[in-house]
Design a protein around this nucleic acid. Structure first.
Lengths: 167, 167
DNA sequence: CTAAACTTTCAAAAAAAATTGAAATTTAAT
DNA sequence: ATTAAATTTCAATTTTTTTTGAAAGTTTAG
């Protein structure tokens, strides 16, 4: 496999992985492209490389910036904006963990808390609802705390810990 | 909040969480419903409760069974099939971790391996591609091993470990 | 201030995914 | 072997999501 083919394969794989995770294809592909670009890219560059429209590029770049994994850059003497991605994959993983906790896990935990806190009417059904949502609440809370722990530790802690656990 | 409202809230929350994770709404809602039902439900029960069609119910039940988190049950003297979900949330989490590893992580790791193994033509671009995909490969491999470790440990190991890590 | 370069917005179009429902198939009882 | 109950399949439809592209908006240079 030579360079162009490998690049294409990486971008499309990352793109379809993205859609499996609730991130749209264009967003994932833009991210993949920036991740392997040694230099910052302009909107034009991205549109051309991925064959997507200006509007699409603009919107998805904004989302990537919101996620905290893509950054704007300005070249001196140039009006155009350039974009780079977070290149350190550890930092990337932390950032994604942090955002997913905030956007998904925490709201879910809140609902589980509410639902599991109803008072039972004594029926089998309501007992089961309470038991199960309480168990999910505990699991989700543990996971969330775990993810936040990872996020706030120093660089490399994650890899070291994972490796230790796997022995 | 009383029972019916809580139940509804739980089912719809679980449903939209599902779609955020690449699992369709109906599938996630069926799972939620079974998770809190003290007794097995028939296809009719599910259709009625969630207002979805027979075909939809049938297809999504099959997928849940493929994931290993819903089971068929037969009541003696009855022709109809009944369904239950895995009730132990720890076991549920393991099963989901196992399937996601198999369906998503492992194929991705394979591609990352291929892509990061091309030989460089010496250009900055190809060096960057190799560096970054290799780093992702390592990260994904660690994560995969970690998930498989969890899956193969005894009951409760996961919670204990997570708690220990968070101290 | 004006014009050119560039970016954002958003209604409309296209594409993708989920859902329906009825026909086909399977299953099991008589 | 026939029938009836139940389940599965899948083409057609509906719904949701993504993408486009042109108009509106912004920014900077002269």
């Amino acid at each position: 496999m030579e360079f162009e083919e490998a690049k294409h394969k990486f971008i499309t794989t990352w793109g379809s992985l993205g859609s499996l995770w609730g991130i749209n294809k264009a967003m994932a592909q833009i991210h993949a492209l920036l991740l392997i670009s040694p230099d910052p890219l302009s909107m034009e560059d991205i549109m051309e490389e991925l064959h997507i429209s200006r509007g699409n590029t603009s919107m998805n770049l904004r989302q990537l910036i919101d996620w905290g994994i893509v950054f704007k850059e300005n070249k001196i003497g140039e009006r155009k904006e350039y974009f780079t991605s977070e290149k350190d994959v550890q930092e990337l993983a932390r950032q994604i963990a942090k955002e997913r906790s905030r956007r998904e896990l925490q709201p879910t935990i809140k609902v589980l808390k509410e639902v599991s806190s109803i008072k039972t009417d004594g029926s089998k059904k309501s007992k089961e609802l309470i038991t199960q949502t309480k168990a999910l609440h505990d699991l989700a809370s543990n996971l969330d705390t775990f993810m936040n722990t990872i996020v706030n530790r120093e660089q490399n802690w994650m890899t070291k810990t994972l490796l230790k656990l796997m022995k």
